[in-house]
Design a protein around this nucleic acid. Structure first.
Length: 276
DNA sequence: AGTGTATCCTGCAGGC
DNA sequence: TGCCTGCAGGATACAC
């Protein structure tokens, strides 16, 4: 799915156009992408005015004027398309929810595989919802020391830890694999075997990769588009992800692919030495 | 408690 | 060309 940089890009685009506007009606075309009874979801939103659009982990968070929120997790293929123009309209191939706005505009949630989830959250429930997620990796409070402590408490492969949203919010497979390549850590290394120096490298790498990807507008491998329908440009900056058999740009050793935890990891067998 | 596996769904690429 | 298999950026329910 869209990971943190993609959610951030979408949220920024929507935050430029949505605040102040009001939802007139909601049409749920695909029941399975909304949390709870579809009728209740559709009935909860009309009349609410957007205050801002932000992000928590990989989730796009729409905050309304009364502190209630709409949270969209994009799953693997979710898109939030808004605004006029041929692109968003052409890209709406699997519409799941339409948000009709009082000014005549429309925002559509589109999702080929329907792994995404839209949740309405009353103001009072936000704290508990947000607390289930780990710290924001780009926040000032996400320190190398905090990451080291998290790593030390977990025996699972470090790639699995990075994907666990309860431990760190927003990192998915692409950026986990990239950050480990930068940090020269093998993806299957048990988290608690990572030393202080390597943990500091990983801390820097995670933040660097996420920041660069945001600057590039995210990564489009297949389906991802921002709210305006544009692709992300970070795909060509990937060093390991999806590059099996291609030479590592640091040492020319062919990148290898392994599968664990049900998904692919890519690494340089020379730069990222296997754990003993 | 912590960790690993199966599952939801559709589209696409590659092999035959 | 067409059919089949495997794979895909995620989260969660469950088993051990």
């Amino acid at each position: 799915m869209p990971e943190l940089p993609e959610a951030e890009t979408i949220a920024r685009g929507l935050d430029a156009v949505l605040p102040g506007r009001v939802i007139a009606s909601v049409t749920v075309l695909r029941d399975d992408v909304v949390k709870g009874p579809p009728g209740a979801f559709a009935a909860a939103l009309p009349g609410r005015q957007f205050r801002d659009v932000g992000r928590r982990g990989k989730n796009v968070v729409f905050t309304f004027d009364d502190e209630s929120r709409l949270v969209i997790n994009l799953g693997m293929t979710g898109r939030i398309l808004s605004g006029p123009g041929p692109d968003p309209a052409r890209l709406t191939t699997h519409p799941a929810v339409h948000f009709h706005l009082a000014d005549g505009g429309c925002m559509t949630y589109d999702d080929i595989r329907r792994f995404g989830l839209l949740t309405f959250i009353p103001g009072a429930a936000w704290r508990d919802w947000s607390r289930r997620l780990g710290p924001e990796p780009l926040a000032r409070s996400f320190t190398a020391r905090l990451l080291r402590r998290t790593l030390s408490r977990c025996r699972a492969p470090v790639r699995s830890l990075l994907l666990d949203q309860r431990k760190i919010a927003g990192v998915g497979n692409i950026y986990a694999v990239e950050a480990l390549w930068f940090a020269r850590i093998h993806p299957a290394t048990p988290a608690n075997e990572i030393g202080q120096e390597a943990a500091a490298r990983l801390h820097r790498s995670v933040r660097k990769v996420l920041r660069r990807a945001i600057r590039a507008g995210g990564t489009t491998l297949r389906n991802y588009r921002n709210a305006e329908g544009d692709v992300g440009r970070f795909g060509r900056a990937l060093h390991a992800y999806g590059r099996a058999d291609e030479p590592c740009v640091r040492c020319r050793t062919p990148i290898e692919r392994i599968v664990f935890g049900g998904r692919s990891a890519f690494f340089c067998p020379r730069c990222q030495a296997a754990p003993p």
